[in-house]
Amino acid sequence: MSGKVAIIASNGGLFDAYKVFNIAAAAAASEKEVGIFFTFEGLNLIHKEAHKALPIPEGREHIKEGFEKQNVPGIPEMLETAKDLGVKLFACQMTMDVMGLEKDDFVDGIEVAGAAAFVEYASDANLTLTF
């Protein structure tokens, strides 16, 4: 029944964002405790501006129509849904420093954490996923 899911998001494309937020929302809706650690390119997924216009892989632009046809929610809505369901969002401090990003550059409600903090969070997770 209950359980804990720990996700690492380390890529910053549109498809990566869907993989991360779909699984996170489904798990949270199924009464799981869910935390996502965003690192490197993955930080785009929670960046205030970048998450609204994530890139589609080159040569795959036509899939955009498929998303619209299937009425798949946009990433901003997916992100809101995840937050609404209590998904915890951790931004990687080290990558933020390297990229010159501040907490204010990200959407509200995130926490800044180091690798050790995520390892601690994930240490009793039933499921750990990397995207």
């Binding site: 929302a25 489904a26 809706a29 798949v72 929610p73 849904t81 369901l85």
Partner: peptide, 13 residues
């Protein structure tokens, strides 16, 4: 209706 995965589950929850 008209919503894709995982929204039916999210709405249900």
């Amino acid at each position: 209706k008209g919503l894709s995965c995982p929204m039916p589950i999210v709405r249900t929850k």
